[in-house]
Design a protein around this nucleic acid. Structure first.
Lengths: 143, 143
DNA sequence: TATTGTTATACTCTATAACTATA
DNA sequence: TATAGTTATAGAGTATAACAATA
């Protein structure tokens, strides 16, 4: 069966593509003192309103204690801040500082060549297919 | 442009799919005392002949010193062994021990539900497309 | 009772740079 | 000179479990 035999290749191909993306990102963001994973956190915050640490962890597919460790580092470098939640005094609202927003803009521009390199050789249709397939896999794995 | 706007989504989708795979794998392999990344190393060795540490690092898309750290752990748990290279006395040949081969077989079986979950909802064509697209992306990022 | 976040803790992966031994 | 591997070192992400405070 074709399917069975290629079953083995998918995890390897997925890993190779992700690691390449991760390494390229780390290399490009290093001059800003930011890691690829920290970029993801900043990008998540950049989308809009402040989030609780738990919401942030959920959206990043990460763990609350992992996110906390990252936030401590990012707070230390002045890119994020944590304020008390208006109604739930257990929670803390995380948001980008002005410097964090500025840095993120630079990071976004610096990362553009990577994003372009990924998609330049793909047609519009292929890109949409790829995203859809990846989302289906992630969904299936989380069931 | 459709392409430009979805440009942003691809890294996120790739990361989400990979992290789901990684977490599922870690969870399943934990009872064997093996991590997802160690599984990849063992799988690379299981394909055939012994490899030098450098070759192993290349095939795993990893770094020689990272691989060394992993090998130290795997040697300690008795799953791999390093013998001197027959002609190049600088190099060391890494291979699975008998116990390593046995454990890998168990790991391979234990991981089957994960691999199946990934592909069950995909047609044969979609699976082949996905693998091909991922490989193209990895290639492009390494240029 | 359940949930948010913190703390303590530990492990793994990652990678650079300096080093040795050899090719 | 270049290469294989080691060592030292450091940092970053990951996650579990126990805990306090609050919902």
């Amino acid at each position: 069966m074709g399917k069975k035999s290629e079953n083995r290749e998918l995890p390897i191909a997925l890993r190779a593509a992700y690691l390449s993306l991760h390494r390229n990102s780390d290399a490009v963001f290093a001059e800003f003192g930011v890691t690829a994973d920290q970029f993801v956190l900043l990008a998540t915050l950049s989308k809009g309103v402040a989030l609780t640490q738990r919401e942030l962890a959920n959206r990043m597919n990460s763990d609350p204690s992992t996110v906390r460790a990252m936030l401590v580092l990012l707070e230390r470098s002045g890119l994020v801040e944590r304020k008390s939640h208006p109604t739930d005094s257990r929670a803390r609202m995380v948001s980008l500082t002005p410097q964090g927003k500025k840095t993120f803009q630079s990071l976004w521009i610096a990362g553009e060549p990577i994003r372009n390199k990924m998609v330049d050789k793909l047609s519009t249709t292929e890109l949409a297919q790829l995203i859809a397939l990846l989302n289906r896999i992630a969904f299936a794995l989380n069931q």
